[in-house]
Structure formats: structure tokens, C-alpha cells
Computed example of a mutant assay.
Amino acid sequence: MATLLFDDRYLDYDFGPDHPFSPIRQEMVVSLLDALGQPIDPISPPVASRAEVRRVHSESLVKKVEAASDGRPPPEAWDYGINTGDVPVFENMDAATRGLVGGTLHGARLIAEEKASRVLQMGGGLHHAHRDRASGFCVYNDLSVAINTLREQNLRVAYVDIDVHHGDGVQFLHYDDPGVLTISLHESGQYLFPGSGGVDEIGEEAGEGSAVNVPLMPHTEPESYRDAFERVVPYALDKFAPDVIVAQCGADAHFQDPLADLLLTSQTYEDLFRDLLSLADEHTNGRILCTFGGGYHLDAVVRVWTLLALLMQDLDLPDTIPADWRTQWQDQLDASLTSTLHDPEPSFNLSRRPDVREKNQQTSTQVLEILAPHWY
């Protein structure tokens, strides 16, 4: 049974009503689980302290975020990735972000102290934040703070990122640590933010060979994505032999997502989540910490994360979504919502399907060939 982490203060991480990284996503997931007869009884984790954030981030960045927390951009905010279209300033920015960091950090501590093995942090996943720069909707990097805590306990950490965007912040914050394996499957940076995540990014110095990137072609369909995952992820985990898996479970590779171009379905996500849990059982005695992340089509992301919450608790998956819940949220959002938990099976009419599949297979093979000398 999974330990779930959530607090209403997570909803304070709010860039405003027109920003796609909206806390309404978590609010809808919590309410849908309740409507399905599976209300959560989460642990309310402590807020991360300033000192805990500083284990990853520079003093200059933290000071700038603190200065922005009155809702007004401080001088030179842009130099730190703040007051941009992606990371606009909002009141209590520092405290709100430390709230999310605290949840992921608490999950890591529960695992390190053997108080839990399977943990779902119903927030966080801020994988783009760098040491001294906010980026891509991410102010502080909760994942790296958590990974550092696990490393302090001499645990080998495998980080698996299935968000559609490359997990650049986490990768580069641990780029020279041979005890952290970062694996990111994402739409190629040739086409999508943040522009990194090529197959040649494999780590440096003592960490050379501990970064794995699988950049996928736009319009990658479920079968091709699953093929890449199955070629690379189990093999990399087998070679690395982790003590714990940390997974960023962004849902923005879904075919309905407006900010990217991959074509995964809710059925694909169910398979991926089951794979991650199975891989944790196989390699880490079940120890896995999952977070949320990206996902910007509300109907899709809420259903995908609800699937994740149910699967992590070993609960049955319902076929339909309660009509009363859909009516409530459709009225609030002025948008239609799918009546089933899974997608109606889509049909993608792609003339370039063979080319996409072939390119992705070549990429997967290239990844393994580049890293092979470092794994034997």
C-alpha cells in the first residue's frame, strides 16, 4: 500500500489563472478519487526549510525568490529565470515552493528511514529548476533535494522521468554523481523546450555513464514509446542496481496535451505506471517515490494522475467517472470531460508513422551503444 502525501498548501503554488501549470489539477484529482469512493487519507508533510532548499540551490537564487515573494519582481529577476512568461512572480512564491519541496523531501525520508516503500507525492516534479535559475514553471527543484537526502544515506538512486520535456535540472544537478542514474524519455530537444537531452549527454567526471537520454520524435505513438522504454529502462536499471527509484510522472506526453507532440494514451500511462512499480519490486525491494509534474490538458492529466494514485494503492480501476463529478467540474471549467477513466481508443492517421518508429528504434539502439562501455 502506498503512502500518499498532500496538503492544501500545495494549491498555493499558483502562477495565476492563465498559466498552464495550475493547482486545479491536484484539486481535481483529489476530488475525483473521493467521487470514485477512494478518498485519500494523506500525510501532510512539513514545509522544507530554507537550509534544506540551499542544499541544492544557490544563496543568490533563494534570496531572489524570497524578494519576489511580495508579488513584485525584484531587480535582475530575469537573470535568475524569474518574472518570465514561464515563471511569473506571485505572492508567497518562496513559501509555496518550499511547501512542494517539503512533500517530496518527506517522501524520500520516509523511504530512507524504512517507514514506507511506495510513496506518491501528489505535487512537485519541478524538474527544470537549476542550481541558480528557475525555469520551465519550476522555481526550486524538489526532486533534487529529495535525491540528495537519499544519497546522504548512501542509497543509490535511479531517477526515471517520463514527462514529455527533458528532465534537465535533475540531470545536471547530479551530472557528476555516479550514485545517481538519471533516465529521461522525452520529445527531442530539437523540437521542444528545454532543448537539451541528446543521447550524447551521459554525465561527466565520476558520473560519466550515469545519465541516459532517449529523445523521441514528434508524433511518437504508444507502441513506439513503449518499445523505447522497454529497450532502455529495464536494462539501465539492471546495470545500475539502484536502492530506490524516484519517478517524475508528468502526463504531458498525452496526445491531447497542448504543449507537446507525443501521442500517448491513458492506457499507455497505465502500462508505464505498472512497469515502474514492477521494476521497483524487481530492483529496489519496492522502494519508489513518484511525483506529479507536467500535464496541461485538464481532462487528460486528471485522469492519468488518478490512474497513478489508484495503481500505487493497488486499487481496482473503475470504467466510468461519476456523472455528478463531471457535471460539477464541467460547469466550473466550461469544458467537457471524458465519461470514462480511460481514453476512448484514438486513431492516429499518420503518414510518417514508419519513419517515426524507425528513428526511435535507432535512437534507443544508439543510447545503449554509447553507454555500453561505461556499464561493463
Rank of each mutant, 00 (worst) to 15 (best):
Q313P: 00
G294T: 12
V301Q: 04
L311W: 03
T284Y: 05
W305N: 01
L272E: 04
L263R: 15
W325K: 06
H297T: 09
Y269K: 08
H254I: 10
G293Y: 02
G294L: 08
E270T: 14
D314T: 07
V304I: 15
T320N: 15
Y269E: 05
L315M: 12
P322Q: 14
A280F: 05
G293S: 13
V302A: 00
D257N: 08
Y296E: 12
L272P: 04
I288S: 05
A309I: 09
L277E: 07
L315Q: 14
F292I: 02
L311Y: 02
Y296R: 10
L310N: 06
L276I: 15
T320W: 09
D314P: 04
D257R: 09
A323E: 14
A323I: 10
T291V: 13
A253M: 09
M312W: 02
I288G: 04
G294R: 13
D275R: 15
A309M: 02
L277K: 06
G295P: 09
I288Q: 07
L277F: 13
Y296P: 12
G286W: 06
Q267G: 09
E270F: 13
L307Q: 01
L276R: 11
D261W: 07
R287N: 14
D275G: 06
Y296L: 05
R274M: 12
D261L: 11
T306F: 03
G295Q: 06
F292E: 03
W329R: 00
Q313S: 11
W305R: 08
G295W: 05
L259Y: 11
L308C: 07
R326G: 03
P322Y: 14
Q256F: 05
W305I: 00
D316C: 08
G295R: 07
V302S: 04
L272I: 15
L307W: 01
F292W: 14
A260D: 10
D314N: 15
A300M: 06
G286R: 07
T320D: 15
L276C: 09
H254D: 14
H254N: 14
W325E: 02
L262C: 12
L263G: 12
F255V: 10
V302T: 15
D314I: 01
H283L: 08
L277D: 12
V304D: 05
L298A: 05
L308M: 09
M312Y: 05
L315S: 08
L264W: 01
W325M: 07
L279E: 08
Y269D: 03
L263M: 10
D324A: 15
W305L: 01
L262S: 07
L310T: 02
M312P: 02
T284R: 07
E282V: 12
I321H: 01
A300Y: 02
D252I: 13
G294E: 11
R287F: 09
C290K: 06
L310F: 00
L308S: 03
D299V: 00
D257E: 09
L311E: 04
S266A: 14
T268R: 02
R287H: 13
F255W: 15
L311I: 15
L277Y: 07
R326Q: 13
D299A: 01
I321C: 03
Q313T: 10
D281E: 15
A309T: 04
T320Q: 12
L298R: 07
A323Y: 06
L298H: 05
E270Q: 15
D299E: 12
F273R: 05
W325A: 04
H297V: 01
G295C: 08
D319P: 02
Q328A: 06
A253G: 15
L262D: 11
Y269N: 08
P318G: 09
T327N: 10
L259G: 10
D257T: 12
T291P: 04
